[in-house]
Design a protein around this nucleic acid. Structure first.
Lengths: 347, 347
DNA sequence: ACGCGTTACTGACGCGGGTTACTGTCGGCG
DNA sequence: CGCCGACAGTAACCCGCGTCAGTAACGCGT
């Protein structure tokens, strides 16, 4: 027989006060309790190892003190997400400052719904990570007034979002290539363009080209899709169909595959081709060559999205859109273009 | 004004039955309800979009239907854990089959406790991931009778554990090197030997050497510590102090750093040095060269640990120790030793 | 001495759903 | 015809806590 867990009534009995007083003291309500009593209650609680029952508290107070993180991505994407752990850590840290915990739910897009997390009161709010363009459940849930915050961007949805400044980050990357002297700059996306982040990074790429007075060529842009093999394919296409001297790959993982293709084609980095990535995953510094990339502040992203959600839950005002700055990390995969191998191609 | 969420009383009213009946039907209790009534209740619940209140249910039934995942590692380790996402997915999938959700908690060792997750009733059981040798809280919590399952191994603790067969995996790796003809085989650990997994992998390495009739040299073994830089350092030491022709690196991430050191030393893989890793992280296939390694079934690991915990919670019997098999994945970083550069060293 | 406002605390209700013991009804059988 | 048991369903209590309305005691001014 286990010694039944102590309840607030036990604490009250031990401290010689009413249960109400215990509740007031432990929840730090307005000071209508004498310091002496307060201390007695606290001691009693400590002595008993009292821990409020989460369910009871939730039932009575109407709040679960739990945040939900919904991973709205395919299994492969989740598995390949190098930054998830960091983002999660940031989110948990933020949650903890508000006395919250984090519940994680991975649902393939168009598969199981997540709204029950809210409707069952299991969570007080949700962080939706990496949604696609369309998500009916998102609209419904938001319309129902549940606190939601997007991690990522989704134009046209009235939900606060926190994201990395993809456009600026991509622009920075391409500006770096331009500064090195490149004029023919390819782009491999991190995902199909239906994904907002992919679109934004391409936008940044285009902006940088425009600012540099470079006429882009649509063929310079190839689509990647989250993983290294897609980068390999895209780079192969780029080598076949263009003569770019540098490539902005909007994802380190994809860049990894792209570099593999360069290796297979016996193109040396950075002499014969510069490659700049995006994300700065933990292993980026250990690529061969060490990858120049654009750092995403993953921890801060998780933290910021957590704070935003906490604010929403407490009805504080939340910026409709928060963009976190990225940072250029120059390593060894980029350099000036070679004078000119001049293998100009037609068309 | 939001339309208050429907309660079981609403469902009961709509179906024209008592709340008790609703509860019986929705929880699938013994068949003392006529099919017609049953159907009416189900329809009513569906029509109202009824979702039981998690807190109330937890309070009444005493179970939260929530699993906790406690990451007992330093922030850096969590960030660098390439397999976490997969393991988490497996755990969530297992949880879902039992109607459970997953709550994640990352606590630095010796920092915040996690026992309150259990004592507050927020979770019905915990998966403790990657504990070190010692953890007083673990012993206490286990002794208090809370359902715990370790993901990893911790000798001497009476808690069921699920882990990868590190010993066999390491042995397989080294046997592979032996089969290629190597006799001087180094080892870089994945972590300090205080970590069980590191110790086990070294044990496997030693076993394989012994079986092959090779007298190991203590200098052949260098300690890595989770990240690539540690692998770089360890490999540098190995190059300076030994003349091994192959190295078993007990972690792909560490191997990445080790390969960096080889590159810096202008040693070509696999001609001048074979390297085999452990884990088979998503990027392993895209190393240069593609890394031969030992695959950890990360998803299955998470799934198995989840099932074990679910069993413990429902008082089913659980194996004290479950070991999942690994799989050798041969890529291009290993090959036969070169005939003999014969730079035999003394000592 | 009395009234009145504080201060310090408590009684009792309700949150929503699980569950136990009970009631009423009907068919079948002796 | 009367009794019994199975069947279908229900009333009422309980889980542990937050909280509002209320009460007792006390100080203070007149």
């Amino acid at each position: 027989m286990e010694p039944r867990r102590p309840t607030s009534a036990d604490v009250a009995a031990l401290a010689g006060v009413s249960r109400t007083t215990v509740s007031f003291v432990l929840n730090g309500r307005d000071v209508q309790i004498s310091p002496a009593t307060r201390e007695r209650v606290i001691q009693a609680a400590r002595q008993l190892g009292y821990q409020p029952h989460a369910g009871a508290r939730q039932l009575a107070a109407g709040r679960s003190h739990t945040l939900g993180l919904v991973l709205r991505q395919s299994a492969d994407q989740v598995a390949g997400d190098q930054l998830l752990a960091e983002t999660l850590r940031g989110l948990m840290t933020a949650a903890r400052t508000g006395g919250f915990r984090v519940m994680v739910e991975a649902t393939e897009p168009d598969a199981e719904p997540y709204g029950d997390l809210l409707r069952s009161g299991r969570t007080d709010g949700l962080v939706i990570s990496g949604p696609r363009r369309d998500d009916p459940e998102l609209r419904e849930t938001a319309a129902a007034g549940f606190p939601l915050v997007l991690q990522g961007s989704l134009p046209g949805v009235k939900v606060p979002s926190v994201d990395v400044d993809n456009v600026a980050g991509a622009r920075t990357a391409v500006e770096h290539l331009v500064a090195l002297g490149h004029r023919r700059i390819g782009c491999i996306t991190n995902a199909p363009l239906a994904y907002t982040s992919a679109q934004e990074r391409v936008d940044g790429y285009r902006q940088a080209l425009a600012e540099a007075g470079i006429d882009g060529d649509p063929v310079w842009i190839q689509e990647g899709a989250f993983d290294a093999p897609s980068g390999h394919r895209a780079m192969t296409a780029l080598l076949e169909r263009t003569n770019v001297s540098a490539v902005f790959v909007a994802s380190d993982v994809v860049a990894f595959g792209a570099i593999g293709a360069l290796r297979a084609a016996r193109r040396r980095l950075p002499d014969e081709m510069s490659v700049i990535g995006f994300d700065d995953i933990p292993l980026a510094a250990f690529f061969d060559p060490p990858l120049t990339t654009v750092r995403i502040p993953a921890y801060e992203l998780g933290h910021a999205v957590g704070i935003a959600l906490l604010d929403r839950i407490s009805h504080a005002s939340v910026a409709a859109r928060t963009l976190l700055p990225t940072e250029l990390v120059v390593r060894a995969s980029t350099g000036p273009p070679r004078p000119s191998p001049s293998t100009r191609r037609e068309s």
